[in-house]
Design a protein around this nucleic acid. Structure first.
Lengths: 191, 191
DNA sequence: AAGATAGCCCTAACCGTTAGGATTTCACAA
DNA sequence: TTGTGAAATCCTAACGGTTAGGGCTATCTT
């Protein structure tokens, strides 16, 4: 139970990756709704129960890197140099995340997500979790000294900026425009 | 096909109401997860297919008045006296909506929603729709003359205020605090 | 009164998801 | 090396939300 030495972990990670890769490939080939979990399992040559041992739901197969996103965001807050102002740090990080999700290769995936109500709904609820994690990071920052409400609201605003930019015609400009609003909102709460 | 003379529409509405009432009662009595659609249908004395003819999903049974919410919100924008400033109008409306959803009788329903991931997720995706409707109303207002991005961001901020307040210890104060931020954000975008 | 149609019903299935329990694979220590 | 425990996987069967297909009746329109 303490610190496995390799092979098991590697095999598990390999299985997980194989499932995720197979799923994404099938989804893009035939459409999300046209591919069943049983199809994914068969093609990846694992049992259906194994799929659910690695992913909590069918939608989760599409958002495999979800955890990374949350970490990047919270670390933009927690790992920034001391006394560096908060909003520019978040602004930069959101720009980077948006660039990542509107990159060349991501277009088909985005189209698939927008085309499926189930995936859109799942993405929304993911965003809510990210907002909560970010709110926690803001609340914990000793330099900020804002109320919990302000931290929660700011976190949601930042996630809104990301969500809007991902779907906008000019993602970069959208992030900038929304962050001008966030900056004003934040500064209006100065203690 | 236009303008039925009554009985049919009345019967349809009655069926819908009976299903919604029965569902909510059973959910509160036994818990959301412990009640199946087949139970609701049997207790309301209708076929399962009839339930889905009136409600798009099991979760929708809980948010029967969803449409009203959206109308109230958009009308706070479209029906306000000419030249009345936007933000105070929205502020007042959100206060009213929050009071409504944190009223005495709503507590058990709220507890039920917070206790079910499926319901929370559904509520989130509803909120997104409301934000889009509000954004459309803002974009359409001839007195505002803000970019589509600003309208969309503001709409989401307002929905955030509502969502945060519904779960806060002091809902009224939360609305006020978040709206101070929204006001600053909005004014920072003055043309 | 006679069609047209909306609302409802029934049955059977689809699909995501989970429970239960067996089986294999690996890590580690005797 | 081999025994042991735990983790990963598997199989089967089911549960519960949801939908398709097709039929029946009450209501509406003309």
């Amino acid at each position: 139970m303490i610190e496995q030495s390799g092979r098991r972990e590697r095999k598990k990670a390999a299985t997980r990756q194989k499932i995720a890769d197979t799923a994404l490939r099938l989804f893009l080939e035939r459409g999300y709704d046209a591919v069943g979990i049983r199809d994914v399992a068969a093609e990846a040559d694992v049992a259906v129960t194994t799929v659910f041992a690695h992913f909590a739901s069918k939608e989760a197969l599409v958002f495999e890197r979800d955890q990374d996103f949350e970490q990047h965001l919270t670390r933009a807050v927690t790992d920034r140099p001391p006394h560096e102002p908060l909003i520019p740090a978040l602004h930069r990080e959101v720009q980077a995340l948006v660039r990542h999700c509107t990159a060349e290769g991501s277009a088909p995936v985005r189209r698939m997500i927008e085309g499926s109500p189930a995936l859109r709904e799942y993405e929304e609820s993911m965003s809510l979790r990210h907002a909560q994690a970010l709110a926690a990071a803001l609340t914990a920052d000793p330099h900020l000294s804002r109320s919990a409400t302000v931290c929660r609201a700011t976190a949601r605003f930042v996630i809104d900026a990301y969500a809007l930019a991902c779907r906008a015609d000019d993602p970069g400009a959208t992030v900038d425009e929304v962050f001008r609003m966030i900056k004003a909102a934040w500064e209006a709460t100065a203690p």
